[in-house]
C-alpha cells in the first residue's frame, strides 16, 4: 500500500471516529447510532483485510498490543470493539471510551509508530510541566500568605508555673511565645490553681548594639521585671483592695513602665508574676524605637535559655 493510500485511510478513520463521537455527544441521538461509524473507522484503520483475520480479532490484537487504553482493555470491551451488534449493546460511557481509544489510535497512526514513544514522552512532559507550574504557583502563594519565616515556633520564653504564690513546689514548665496572658478566672495550666499561684518567665535577649529601651509591665495582681539580676520594674508589693498613697482604690490591672539603657550583648530577662485572687493577667511589652509604642519582644531577638539553667544567671553571661 502506498503512503498516499495510508494517509487517506487514516483520514477516513478520523472522519468516521469524529462522526461517531458527534453522535454519542448529541443528546438527540441514541448511542447505538454511532456503532456503524465506529466499525467503519476500525476498518479504515486496519486497511485491506487479510483472509484469515476478521475485524474483531484485528482490533482486539491492535488494542492489546498498543495498550493505548489507560487501563488494560477488558475482554468484554475488546470483544465489542468491531462487532456492530455488540457495539449497539454498549453503554454510552463505554461507547465514548471506545471512540476515544480509536481516536488515540488514529493519532498514533498519523504520527507513525516510530514517533509514538516520543509523543507519549512529550505528553508526559507537557502534563509534568503543567503540574509543576501549578504546584509552584500554589507554593509561592502559600509562602506569601503564611509567611513561615515569621513562625515563632514553640517560643523563646521558659515559663515555670508554681502552685503557690511564693515560687515553692514543683513547677509546670512549658515554652511560651510571649508573656501576654489574660487568664481571667481560669488556671494557667491544668495542674495549677486559678488563684494564689506564681509564674516565672525567663529568656535571653540579644542586642547587636546598645539601645535605650522602654519596658512596660501590666499585671493583675503582682509582677516584676528583672534584667541581668537587677529589678527594673517592681509591682510586687501592692495587693488587690489595697489603697494607694492618697487613699484611693487601686484599680487592677496596674501598669508600670520604665526607660532603661541596655548595652550590646546578651541580657537575661526575667518576668515574675504572682496571682492573689479573682482575675489573673500579665503582659510584658518593650520597645527599642522611641517612636513606636511598646509591644511584644520580637522572637528573633530572643534565645531560649534551655530546660534547666542557673536561675541567678540563666543566659550563662560571663
Amino acid at each position: 500500500m502506498t503512503e498516499k493510500q495510508d494517509t487517506e485511510r487514516i483520514a477516513e478513520a478520523r472522519r468516521e471516529g469524529l462522526a461517531a463521537l458527534a453522535i454519542v455527544s448529541d443528546p438527540n441521538c441514541l448511542p447505538r447510532q454511532a456503532a456503524s461509524h465506529l466499525v467503519g473507522a476500525w476498518e479504515a484503520l486496519r486497511g485491506p483485510p487479510n483472509e484469515d483475520d476478521d475485524l474483531p480479532s484485528w482490533v482486539r490484537r491492535d488494542l492489546a498490543s498498543a495498550k493505548v487504553e489507560r487501563r488494560e482493555p477488558t475482554v468484554k470491551f475488546l470483544e465489542s470493539c468491531a462487532d456492530e451488534a455488540a457495539l449497539q449493546r454498549l453503554s454510552e460511557d463505554e461507547m465514548r471510551a471506545l471512540i476515544q481509544t480509536l481516536l488515540a489510535r488514529v493519532r498514533t497512526h498519523e504520527r507513525g509508530e516510530a514517533t509514538k514513544e516520543a509523543a507519549d514522552k512529550s505528553t508526559f512532559a507537557l502534563w509534568g510541566r503543567r503540574f509543576g507550574a501549578w504546584a509552584g504557583i500554589v507554593v509561592v502563594f502559600a509562602l506569601v500568605a503564611l509567611r513561615p519565616w515569621t513562625y515563632q515556633g514553640v517560643g523563646q520564653w521558659h515559663g515555670a508555673y508554681y502552685p503557690g504564690k511564693d515560687f515553692r513546689g514543683e513547677p509546670d514548665v512549658r515554652r511560651e511565645a510571649d508573656v501576654d496572658f489574660s487568664w481571667g478566672a481560669l488556671p494557667p495550666t491544668d495542674s495549677i490553681p486559678s488563684d494564689r499561684f506564681a509564674a516565672r518567665f525567663t529568656t535571653c535577649l540579644h542586642l547587636d548594639e546598645g539601645v535605650e529601651a522602654a519596658f512596660q509591665l501590666i499585671a493583675d495582681d503582682a509582677a516584676r521585671l528583672i534584667i541581668d539580676g537587677e529589678d527594673v520594674i517592681d509591682l510586687w508589693d501592692v495587693k488587690e483592695g489595697e489603697k494607694g498613697e492618697k487613699g484611693e482604690k487601686i484599680e487592677m490591672p496596674r501598669s508600670f513602665g520604665r526607660e532603661y539603657e541596655l548595652d550590646a550583648g546578651v541580657h537575661s530577662v526575667v518576668v515574675e508574676y504572682r496571682e492573689e485572687d479573682e482575675a489573673a493577667e500579665v503582659h510584658f511589652l518593650a520597645t527599642f524605637d522611641q517612636d513606636v509604642p511598646p509591644g511584644p519582644l520580637p522572637s528573633s531577638m530572643l534565645e531560649y535559655p534551655g530546660e534547666t539553667f542557673d536561675e541567678d544567671n540563666p543566659c550563662g553571661i560571663e
Binding site: 522602654a214 512596660q216 484599680e251 496596674r254 501598669s255 513602665g257 520604665r258 513606636v292 511598646p294
Partner: peptide, 15 residues
Amino acid sequence: QRLWDSEREKYLEGV
C-alpha cells in the same frame, strides 16, 4: 501610637 506620641509617660505608667 497616638497616645504614645502625645502622652508617653502616662502611657507607660497607666492603664
